[in-house]
Simulated assay, not measured.
Amino acid sequence: MPEGKIIKALSGFYYVVNEDGVTQCRGRGVFRINNITPLVGDNVVFQAENDKEGYILEVKERKNELVRPPIANVDRAFLVFSAVEPTFSPALLDRFLVLVEYNHIEPIICITKTDLASEAELEMLEDYATGYRAAGYEVLFVSSETEAGVEQLYPHLEQKISVFAGQSGVGKSSLLNVLRPDLDLKTNDISAHLGRGRHTTRHVELIEIGDGLVADTPGFSSLEFQEIEAEELGSCFPEIMKASERCKFRGCLHVKEPKCAVKAAVEEEVIPRYRYENYLNFLQEIKDRKPRY
């Protein structure tokens, strides 16, 4: 049986790229019975009844999967945040980072609209970038308007499935249009009333850019920590996880425990205070979460 990868899902059809091109497929009824939904990014076995139509018979084991956006086997996430319009939010970025880390996806922080930022705003962003880089993250500054810094993205796209994610209006589609101009993806301005952009992407599709595949996703519509337990949260902050190895007590949550190396690192400014405060806020959110039954 032929095998391939789903590169687009739309209106009940799955478009599977394979050695013969792209085959439009439907899912067999057995998937609904077994509560399996094929996702963009899935490696599948399919049966082609002719050169244009077929049926997906099997979904191979996934490395990871995201619910919103619905995509599987993601290697890398470009977390796109704007310098201005909307204003850069480290709390929101940390929320994205936690979800990406939890799903074992490598994050790249990409700050757009640098051409619109003032000198003071750029200095503030550089301070934040220093903290994130110290934690081990790659931070790139780019402008879709001037194309400054965009060339930095290409090496990170090679041989990977990547997603571009971030809140509405930060310029994800604009950035992809610069990376591959023939896409001509729709973009919308920021809504003055809402202070954020309107979603311009309506379905998930993998797009070839260089030697990699990129998903222009509708954005994370859910940023809640439904699956993460309190004991797991620290592992989603690389600098906290590293410092926690020196905590006196195993299972330290770095809140009120004595001889906590994480709290010491915050006092010594090794860990940025805003990162620690976001950790505490997320931890409380997880503790306050309604139990699942």
Rank of each mutant, 00 (worst) to 15 (best):
I6H: 08
L10Y: 14
G12Y: 12
F13T: 00
Y14T: 08
Y15P: 01
V16D: 03
V17M: 12
E19A: 14
D20A: 13
R26T: 15
G27I: 07
R28W: 04
R32N: 14
P38N: 11
V40H: 11
G41R: 10
D42M: 05
V45Q: 13
F46G: 12
K52C: 10
L57A: 12
P70A: 15
I71G: 08
A72H: 12
V74Y: 05
L79K: 04
E85V: 10
E85T: 13
E85K: 14
T87G: 10
P90E: 08
L97H: 00
L99K: 06
E101D: 07
Y102E: 11
N103D: 14
I105Y: 02
P107H: 04
I109A: 11
C110S: 10
I111D: 00
T112C: 06
L116Y: 11
L116Q: 14
S118R: 08
S118V: 11
S118A: 08
L122F: 00
E123L: 13
E126Q: 12
E126V: 02
Y128T: 05
Y128E: 01
A129M: 01
T130A: 14
Y132F: 15
R133T: 02
R133I: 01
R133F: 00
A134W: 00
A135M: 12
A135K: 02
Y137A: 01
L140H: 13
S144L: 05
G149L: 00
G149Y: 03
E151R: 13
Q152W: 07
Q152N: 12
L153S: 08
Y154S: 14
P155H: 02
H156K: 04
E158Q: 14
E158Y: 07
K160M: 09
V163K: 04
G166V: 03
S168P: 05
S168C: 05
V178H: 03
L179D: 02
L179V: 04
D182Q: 11
L183K: 04
D189C: 01
H193S: 15
H193M: 13
L194S: 14
R196E: 14
R198H: 09
T200G: 07
L206R: 05
I207E: 02
G210V: 08
G212I: 04
V214A: 03
A215W: 09
G219I: 10
S221V: 07
S221H: 08
F225G: 03
I228Q: 02
I228T: 06
G234I: 12
G234A: 15
E239V: 00
K242L: 13
A243I: 03
S244W: 04
R246K: 15
R246P: 00
C247Q: 04
F249D: 05
F249S: 10
R250H: 12
H254R: 10
V255T: 14
C260Y: 01
A261F: 09
A265K: 04
E267S: 15
E267A: 15
E268Y: 09
V270N: 09
R273I: 14
E277V: 10
N278T: 13
N278S: 14
L280D: 03
F282N: 03
F282W: 01
Q284H: 11
E285T: 13
K287D: 02
D288T: 08
R289T: 11
K290T: 12
